[in-house]
Amino acid sequence: MGKTTIPEEELMHPGHIACLGCGGGLAMRYMLKALGRRTIVSVPACCWAIMHGKHPSFALDVPLVNTAFEVTGASISGIRAALDAKGIKDVNVVGFAGDGGTVDIGIQALSGAVERNTDIFYVMYDNEAYMNTGIQRSGATPEGAWTTTTPVGTTGDWKKGPKKNMVEIMVAHDIPYTATVNVAFPEDFVKKIAKGKDIVGPKFYHAFAPCPTGWRHPPEHMVKIAKMAVDSNLFPLFEVEKGKYRITRKPKKKIPVKDYLRLQGRFRHLPEDVIEKIQRGADRNWELLLRKEEFTADF
């Protein structure tokens, strides 16, 4: 077995109450490995609001504050301000929020926090729906997906239109560092988070985190499905540093999106023409990303 570069120290312990095969659980684990003990985490309403344990249990070895749903950006601004007031400079401040808490109800507070150039990490663990409340669609739910509020029914009422592109929304704020990470690629995940420690200002991470419960697949397929999201170019791994795009994994053999979709019950209803549309979207976005990388190569 090869040696990994991932720190061995565990800051997330047994006793957490994540579902079997939870991608969000791994996202927290890798993030804490990368950042270490001198880290304060703020978590809004989301799966992680309960995953660290109910009072008096607590599964993490870092201080954590639970906050209201829409305030993560404001909460981490407050923590950073308090640390600055006390002259504490060597503590990482992290907002760790779900996709709905980020792209929907929390987008205003996040936009404010990054516009103020606050020195924070923000990790959106994206399981592509409101999972803690029971699989309702969010602005990050992909086209074609079944959720309990896009129930397909007899009329083909699945999620229509693409998911919000949160990475580009952050890039448009001209922040120093934005990256995609994926729980199936822990070395890349840890490396990108650790890189943020040397960057002053807001760091935004879009973390792909499958949810077997909501995506309707067996827990043991979680990492496989997460990997296929990258290999199908539906979720490319890249980073944007001061406007410069760099793709951190270019799949040697691209797989069709159909292979990714058919492993998940949430896409089982999709007719061929919609699958083809999703394929065209993935191809187009990948081409666009390649050109952005090329276009910004000299930055």
Partner: peptide, 11 residues
């Protein structure tokens, strides 16, 4: 929200 988190951080 910022005041709450700042206060919890001791300020």
């Amino acid at each position: 929200a910022a005041c709450i988190s700042a206060s919890l951080a001791g300020a």
